[in-house]
Design a binder for these strands. Sequence first.
DNA 1: CTCGTTCTGTACTGATCGATACGCAAGTAT
DNA 2: ATACTTGCGTATCGATCAGTACAGAACGAG
Lengths: 204, 204
Amino acid sequence: METHRKGKTAVGRPRGFDAEEALERAMRVFWEQGYEGASLTDLTEAMGITRTSMYAAFGNKEELFRKALERYTEGPASYAARAAEEPTARDAATAFLTGSVRATTRPDSPAGCLGVQSALAAGGPGRNARDALIAWRNEGVAALRDRFVRAVDEGDLPPGADPGVLARYLMTVANGIAVQAASGATREELQPVADAALRDWPPA
Amino acid sequence: METHRKGKTAVGRPRGFDAEEALERAMRVFWEQGYEGASLTDLTEAMGITRTSMYAAFGNKEELFRKALERYTEGPASYAARAAEEPTARDAATAFLTGSVRATTRPDSPAGCLGVQSALAAGGPGRNARDALIAWRNEGVAALRDRFVRAVDEGDLPPGADPGVLARYLMTVANGIAVQAASGATREELQPVADAALRDWPPA
DNA sequence: CTCGTTCTGTACTGATCGATACGCAAGTAT
DNA sequence: ATACTTGCGTATCGATCAGTACAGAACGAG
C-alpha cells in the first residue's frame, strides 16, 4: 500500500487545483485572522476548494497551519535566513531589522507577522498552533545567536559581546515591529525605529 | 425607571458575588487564552458565576473584555502611567521598559501582555476586540510622545530629538518584550534586552 | 469496455459557540 | 403580609465550529 504520490506516476483522478497556490491563500488567511479566527469556511473559500479536498490534501486545520507556517518561513520571512548570510554581524542585524520592517508592512500582504500574530495566546484547541509558533520564534533567536557566536569568533563583534543577548534583543525589536505594524504603523514610521535600535550596535 | 445602581440604596435581590473579583478573574482568562480563545464557559467558570449573571453584570463578551482591559490598564499595566511621571525622559523610558519586563514576567500572572496577545489578529467576531487593543496601544504611544515633547521643552531631551520616534521606539521594544515573554523568555533574559534598548538614549 | 484508484461536491455529524427565556430565590418598600 | 424589583439556575436557542460519509466524477491500467 502506497499512500504518497510518487512523482509523475499519477493514478486516479488528478487534483483539480494547485496545492501551492491553495496553501499560499490559506497562509494569508491565517496571517490576517489568526489560527483561531480562521474558520474552515474562511480558509476553503479563500483556497477555492471544498472542505473535503482540503482534508485530503493537507490533513486537518492544524497541519494546514504548520504547512502555511513553513511556506511563510520560506517566503515572506525568508529575509531572516538571508540576513544571517551577510558578511558581518552589523550587516546581518541591519538586514534582519530592515527585512522585518519591509515584510510586516508590504502593501499587498496582511500587516504584521504571521509568526507573531496568528497565535500568541490561544484556548485549548489552538494550543498546538501557539506552541508551534513559540518554537518558531525561539528557533529564530537561536539562529541569530549562532550567527553572532561566529561573529565573535571572526572578530566582527568584540570579545566581550554576548551573542545571546544580542540575538534576543534583535528578535525582541523585530517582534515589536510586527506588533506595531499590526497596529497600523507604516513603513515610514517603523524604519526609524529599526535605525534607532541599531544605533548602539557593538563596533567591530 | 432607574436602571443604574445608586450607591447604597439597593432594591431587589443583592448580587451574590464580588463584581471586581469576577472581573479580575475574567481578565486573567483573556490574558492567558486571548479574546477568541476564551469561551463563555471558560470565563464564567473562572469567575465563579453563571452565564446569566455575567450577562446581567457586564453586558456581553465584548463589553466584558473592554472592562477587563480597563482593569488591566489600571492594574498590571499601571507602570506605564507611573513611568510618565518620572522626572526626566530617561527615567521615564527606563521605568517604562523595566515595568514592561516585570509586568510580562510575573510568576503569579500569565506571561506576556494582555494588550498585545489577547487579540493581535482576529476573525469577524473578534474584530472589535482587536480594534480596541490597537487603539489601546496607540494611546500608549501618544502618551509617551506627549511626555517626550514636554521633555524637549524642559531640556532633558536635546532639541533635535524626535519625540514621536522615541515614543514609537519604546513601545516597539515593550511590545517585543511582551511577545518574548509569551514565548517563554524569563525576566533574567529580558532585563538585559531592556538595558540594551536604553543604552543609546539621547543625553540631556 | 471494465476495474481500481483518487479527487470532488453535497449533505451531514456531534460538539461548542455566544446569548436568552423563564421560573424561582432573595432582597426592599409600603 | 403583599407588591415590586432584581439576581440566580436551568434548560435551551439558532449559528457555527472542525471534521466526515457517501456517491459520483475523472483519470490510468488491463
